[in-house]
């Protein structure tokens, strides 16, 4: 037995003890229930799992053991309703060990969103990587969701791929790309938005202007005043919608008066 295996075995034993302390019979029953759980069933039957989530807070091994059981359920061909329940709980307790199972759900129109429901909130770079890798593979219908989640995670490695989608003929994809780059908010993201703004179609004019203004606000907040003003200057002309022009002018004035 290697040192690592011994460590894992010990962790599993500790976990079992901790979970036992939170009423293992009830948890076992609830996990078993997941196999047949469907729309119309009483959510109360799954409450022991919720209680275990609270009870195992701060006990990494117990949490990992609980998470493992949820992942096993996820991989076990459960109903959409059960899958929905599991992903919501992995949103709270999910770690690296959930990511592969969740990533497998990303390409399906039935499960992509609920997989992101967990993945978007798991603070592990592998979760971001899973979403980033799925972007070129998913349908246009699903792309806005993945793009949005990558934006929320401020994934700099996705800037180029998302920028390429600014000119996508599918307006939902293009709008999501603008919004996402605004959330990433780095100079590179702003630069891509700025370049695109000059050739944006009528229906992308406001989304891309808004995204640039959001980037400028982030620059201001991080003390990059000249970068912010440069961006504001691009949107102060008369060919911009009145509210965009006013927002840009307001930004310029704010920058000028900010110490």
């Amino acid at each position: 037995m290697t040192k690592e295996t011994t460590k894992l075995t010990l962790a599993a034993v500790t976990a079992t003890v901790a979970v036992a302390q939170t009423d293992s019979t009830a948890i076992n029953k609830a996990v078993e229930t997941l196999k047949t759980y469907d729309w119309g069933d009483d959510p109360e039957t799954l409450k022991p799992i919720d209680r275990a989530i609270i009870a195992t807070h701060g006990d990494t091994a117990a949490r990992m053991a609980l998470e493992k059981r949820l992942v096993e359920a996820l991989n076990g061909g459960i109903s959409r309703s059960a899958l929905d329940y599991v992903c919501r709980r992995l949103r709270i307790v999910g770690t690296r060990q959930s990511i592969e199972a969740l990533a497998a759900l990303l390409p399906s129109e039935d499960t992509s969103h609920i997989a992101r429901y967990a993945l978007e909130r798991i603070p592990d770079e592998k979760a971001v990587e899973a979403m980033r890798n799925s972007l070129p593979k998913v349908s246009n219908k699903l792309k806005p969701g993945i793009i949005g989640s990558l934006g929320k995670r401020r994934d700099k490695k996705s800037i180029q791929a998302i920028s390429n989608l600014l000119s996508d003929p599918d307006i939902q994809v293009a709008k999501a790309a603008a919004e996402s780059l605004a959330m990433i908010g780095t100079p590179d993201a702003a630069n891509e938005l700025s370049k695109f703004a000059k050739k944006a179609s009528a229906d992308m004019k406001i989304p891309v202007a808004d995204a640039c203004l959001m980037c400028a606000e982030q620059f201001m907040a991080s003390g990059q005043k000249s970068e912010a003003v440069a961006l504001y200057n691009e949107f102060k002309s008369d060919d911009q919608p009145a509210q965009v022009k006013a927002a840009a002018m307001k930004g310029i004035i704010t920058a000028a008066t900010k110490k």
């Binding site: 993945l119 909130r121 798991i122 806005p144 969701g145 949005g148 929320k152 709008k175 919004e179």
Partner: peptide, 18 residues
Amino acid sequence: DDEANRLVDAARREPWVI
């Protein structure tokens, strides 16, 4: 509290992004 921070928001169903 990283766990609490997971509850600050929830992923939105496509195509809705904010």
